[in-house]
Amino acid sequence: MKTINIRLPILLLMTLFFSLWGKEAISASVKKDSTAVSLRTFNQGELNKYRSNAEFNYEEGGEDVSLSWWDQFWNRVWTWIRRWFGNIEKPGLSHSPGYWKYIFLTLIAGVLIYILIKSKGLSLSGLFSRKSPSIEVPYTEFSEDIHGISFDEEMGKAVEARDFRLAVRLLYLRSLKHLSEAGKIKWVPGKTNSEYVRELRHTEQRRIFSVLTREFEYIWYGNFPVDNRMFDRIRNAFADFDKGGYK
């Protein structure tokens, strides 16, 4: 404890000595400047010359002709945007963020793509929906209209020629025509027989027509032989259906 008490004043004295010695050394090294000072002024002519040079004109507002047409375009766009939206920073410069430029570029690109898609007549609904949209296929293969067939005449010919298979077909088509005229089914050549059966609302009517349909299918698609007796039975079944089937 005693030694600390002695060292502290010694350290203080040394610090004082060296600081005074250093100060003396610096003041001794500085020389007095005796050079004559002459005041110079800007040459007004030169200044005006520079001012008239567009390259040294940094004022905003004026159109900088040295910029490319693209930069000039964006300058105008940003001037217009600032006028409308206030303090959005000018993009493109190193010190300011350019994300606004990209947002507007994306918007413009989006509009262009939209115009392109619309001009091609495409629909974008499928992009946002899992369900497949329905389309119109320009392809038709319809040749026969049941409303234009003279059934009695054609059936007479078929029976006379003992073509009972064809006669059963005509019976079935005639039933379809009657059902269509009665508004029980909607006739479309592309519909299947089962679709027509399902369209019938009356249960008994649907049951009878379902049986007739199956008989027609066995004969027409299955190529099952039809004799005179069988044809008479089928003709009667169709006649019974015709009597009460369309109410």
Binding site: V137, Y139, T140, E141, F142, S143, E144, R169, Y172, L173, V188, P189, G190, K191, T192, N193, F216, W220
Partner: peptide
């Protein structure tokens, strides 16, 4: 396509 083709009957 199927609906545009007449069912043979």
């Amino acid at each position: 396509i199927i609906h545009q083709i007449e069912i043979p009957r």
